[in-house]
Design a protein around this nucleic acid. Structure first.
Length: 852
RNA sequence: GGGCGCGUAGCUCAGCGGGAGAGCGCUCGCCUCACACGCGAGAGGUCGCUGGUUCGAACCCAGCCGCGCCCACCA
């Protein structure tokens, strides 16, 4: 070790992540480790496409968890020598981004309409240039080994090409079509949204009962509704066909109160005779069920509420009112007309926009839809056949159930920011052109063309992410080298919104599944168990955690707290990670500052060396297997436990004298072990491990590209594990004994061994001096007789002995009871019974010893 | 209305058929020449409740009681 390195290590007893992380990260980038060449075969290469964060986004705990998991696997595979790509990119996030910029405009006293489409879109691009890289910088702070040299954006040139190609092909196949249909209208974003972007919330409304007089009779049909204002658009009253109360009225007409329209009484199975009066008002223009019924019966579809949320001309005297005002006015009018039969509080679930939070207004509008059945069929098969494996497995069924019930997808959005729908209309001759590139003029009449005003759902473009980022539809080198990708980690909330759609488009357009594995990870909740959310103020900022504890600590903590079920954020786990980083630093200092060689090799002299090497290889095998199974929490815990307990607490303490005596063999073994431990931990804690590695005498290049340890079974040694395991246990029992009899901490107690003397370290670490004879034994701990000494009081010993006898008597009684049970002896497996017999023997022997 | 999951030490969570575990917190003792972000030793659980299966159940089955989440068009 160079003199300067020695100086740098010597005084520094604390690991300070802050001063290390930025420097190390810059070194990795400088070396270009994260940017692979597009060569080789996808089966040998390793690739992952990051779930693209919103361009408006800031790194939240979900990103940090997801990123830690991906980086762990990406780094492990890169170290294994696989040509590894972790694709970086961000999503243009239509609604969210447009909303951010519109808000800016409002603050300036402007609207996007005033600005005009072109200027507005330019303005959003300018916003993106200025603020869009924030989250990318934050991924760097996490230590994510993404390919920063090739950042993709869902609206960059090549990506748009992919989107248009897909749209065109789906249109040509007849899957994409335009239709007047009932959609979820989001008054907040002034756009239609898809079913998946709607969330249902329980709301208390008033249920109004309204009398509809039957034409030519003095009977009335009483209907119930929570939205009386929609009655203005009613075009029928429906009853159940089996409902005898109304059988004679089917085919008759009602006169719609306030409006006076004649509307038919129809029979439809959908009506529940048990609910209310069994008569249902039908508003095909403003209710999804009524819409279906209306289409079945050929009813007129009236729109009384417009896209602006106000009553339309069709609402007659109520035109121009907001829907809520109109409700009050309609109720008042009905009351005045004597048609209001009753009102009562009513709790039911109501759709809200997941994007804007506004209450969804179901209405009929002209939109683009994509039929999903044909795309879903093969995407169902690849999951059924495990060509895409979903972990944990219960999500496979959730996926399949949803896919089998899939419905058409409304893909058009009434926004300006996004992929403008590649459809052009000729107003002169009503020709329509769907094309990847804008046609100049109408081919039929040579008239001017007008492009569709709408843009595509953001998820339409994200659905192409794994192959569009690799250059599809061109036959690119990247595509050939890195598609299909290796795996995807995701939160379950976007399983349908995104994962399912990627599988569908991957199979359809890229000719193969987009990834082999999907790991559905847990959701990290706030400390109090609530959802982490900005609006609730329950969010915990990962950047704050990194500032305080370091990225390694956060990464370790997140992986350690992760699970297949939701978990609360654990400060303790992050602290554990920080402590681990510090412990790594200090254990490394001990080794690096004391070794007598620069050679890193397993050179076992003593049995404890064989024990350590055996435990090391077992840990490598086990941690690796767990990472490969996405069992991050156990992988982290196991690596931690080996390093802290077995390596630091036992082995380092055991071999300190040999290390201080400059023994070469133990030095080489320690350097070898340190190298392997650092490499094993690197995918989880890349910064500390890299920093320590820079001081290692074997260092050649960065740890980030150092070979990942492969477990060497030839170093496994069951005999050494058994022997040292026993010696460790004995040491522990001796320490416990001296604590219980309150021996002074510094006192070395006299003892004598029966049979073979214990290993040297037992006496040293437990502070016992073993001699040939010397006085009367006052107690026995295993094969060790503890001798009388001035340091320990007779009463304490007596009390301790009696307590131990009591424990043993209980154990003997338990074992005897079990073995006295004929059924146990007769039916339990022989080895279980045998094990029980051995225990009984042991307990009896020790009890006898203590009773002397 | 369906589906999935969870109730284990004071807290956060593992374990999922053969003697209850981890981290944190707590108690006691240690500044032992890597680390006090440390070392050693402890205390602390009718494993939600009730039945059942089994030689044996925290673990399997059934039913309750709590708590989440997802899907669903009952006005």
């Amino acid at each position: 070790m160079s003199a300067t390195n020695q100086e740098r290590l010597e005084g520094k007893t604390r690991y300070e992540p802050g001063e290390v992380e930025r420097r190390i990260f810059a070194e990795w980038i400088e070396a270009g480790y994260f940017h692979p060449q597009a060569e080789g075969d996808p089966a040998d290469n390793y690739s992952v496409a990051i779930p693209p964060p919103n361009v408006t986004g800031a790194l939240h705990m979900g990103h940090a968890l997801n990123g830690s998991m991906q980086d762990a696997l990406v780094r492990m595979n890169r170290m294994r020598g696989r040509n590894t790509l972790w694709t970086l990119g961000v999503d243009h996030a239509g609604i969210a981004t447009q909303a951010v910029v519109e808000k800016e405009l409002v603050a300036e006293g402007k609207t996007r309409q005033e600005l005009g489409r072109e200027a507005f879109v330019e303005r959003v691009w300018a916003w993106k240039e200025e603020y869009g890289s924030r989250i990318v910088e934050q991924y760097k702070r996490l230590g994510a080994s993404l390919d920063y040299e090739n950042e993709r954006f869902t609206l960059d040139e090549g990506y748009v090409k992919a989107v248009y190609r897909v749209f065109k092909q789906l249109y040509d196949k007849g899957y994409i079509y335009r239709d007047n249909y009932m959609v979820n209208w989001d008054p907040g974003s002034h756009s239609a949204i898809s079913d998946l972007e709607v969330e249902n919330r329980e709301v208390e409304d008033t249920l109004y009962s309204i009398d509809y007089p039957v034409e030519g009779s003095d009977r009335v049909l009483t209907v119930a509704t929570v939205r009386p204002e929609t009655m203005l658009a009613d075009t029928a009253v429906a009853v159940n066909p089996a409902d005898e109360r109304y059988a004679d009225l089917v085919g008759e007409h009602c006169l719609l109160p306030l409006v006076g329209r004649r509307i038919p009484v129809i029979a439809d199975e959908h009506v529940d005779p048990e609910f209310g009066t069994g008569a249902l008002k039908i508003t095909p223009g403003h209710d999804p069920n009524d819409f279906e019924i209306g289409r079945r019966h050929g009813l007129e579809e009236i729109g009384a509420i417009g896209p602006d949320g106000r009553m339309s001309e069709a609402a007659g005297e109520f035109a121009g009112l907001g829907a809520a005002e109109a409700q009050g006015a309609v109720v008042a009018a009905l009351r005045a007309a004597g048609r209001l039969r009753g009102e009562q509080p009513y709790v039911h679930s109501v759709p809200f926009s997941h994007r804007s939070g506004a209450r969804i207004e179901p209405l009929i509008s002209l939109q683009w839809f994509c039929r999903m059945d044909e795309l879903a069929a093969p995407a169902i098969e690849v999951v059924e056949r495990d060509e895409v494996r979903i972990t944990p497995p219960q999500w496979k069924r959730v996926y399949l159930d949803w896919m089998r019930e899939i419905r058409p997808w409304c893909v058009s959005r009434q926004l300006w920011w996004g992929h403008r729908i590649p459809v052009w209309y000729c107003d002169a001759c009503e020709e329509t052109y769907v094309a990847e590139r804008a046609p100049e003029r109408c081919g039929a009449c040579d008239g001017p063309l007008r492009q569709d005003e709408d843009v595509l759902d953001t998820w339409f473009s994200s659905a192409l992410w794994p192959f569009a980022t690799l250059g599809w539809p061109d036959d690119s080198a990247e595509l050939r080298a890195f598609y299909p990708t290796s795996f995807l980690t995701t939160a379950r909330e976007i399983l349908f919104l995104w994962v399912a759609r990627m599988i569908m488009t991957g199979v359809e357009f890229a000719g193969d599944v987009p990834f082999r594995d999907v790991y559905v990870h847990s959701v990290i909740q706030a400390r109090d168990g609530r959802r982490m959310s900005k609006s609730l103020g329950t969010g915990i900022d990962p950047l704050d955690e990194i500032d305080v504890h370091g990225a390694d600590a956060l990464r370790f903590g997140l992986l350690a707290m992760s699970s297949t079920q939701d978990v609360r954020f654990s400060d303790a786990k992050v602290q554990q990670g920080a402590d681990l980083a510090n412990k790594l630093w200090n254990a490394s200092r001990l080794i690096l500052l004391n070794v007598a060689t620069v050679e890193a090799a397993p050179r076992p002299l003593a049995i404890e060396d064989r024990w350590l090497l055996s435990r090391l290889e077992a840990t490598i095998a086990s941690v690796t297997a767990k990472l490969e199974r996405y069992d991050f929490a156990h992988a982290a815990a196991e690596a931690y436990s080996f390093f802290w307990s077995e390596l630091c607490d036992w082995y380092l303490e055991i071999v300190k004298p040999r290390l201080y005596e400059q023994e070469e063999e133990v030095s080489a073994t320690l350097l070898w072990t340190l190298e392997r431990v650092l490499a094993l931990l690197h995918p989880i804690m890349p910064f500390v491990s890299e920093e320590i590695w820079s001081y290692h005498p074997s260092r050649q290049g960065h740890l980030a590209v150092h070979p990942f340890p492969e477990a060497d079974d030839s170093l496994r040694d069951p005999e050494a594990e058994a022997e040292i395991g026993a010696a460790i246990e004995l040491t522990g029992r001796l320490r416990a004994w001296r604590d219980l009899v309150e021996a002074p901490a510094a006192a070395v107690l006299p003892a004598r061994a029966e049979g073979a003397p214990p290993r040297e370290f037992v006496g040293r670490l437990a502070r016992f001096e073993f001699g040939e004879d010397g006085g009367d034994p006052v107690a026995a701990v295993g094969p060790v007789k503890i001798l009388a000494s001035a340091e320990i009081g007779a009463e304490a010993v007596a009390a301790r002995l009696e307590a131990r006898r009591e424990e043993l008597r209980a154990e003997v009684a338990r074992a005897e009871g079990k073995l006295g049970n004929e059924k146990f002896v007769g039916r339990a497996p022989a080895e279980v019974v045998e094990e029980e017999r051995r225990k009984l023997e042991r307990y009896r022997a020790e009890l006898e010893e203590l009773s002397e």
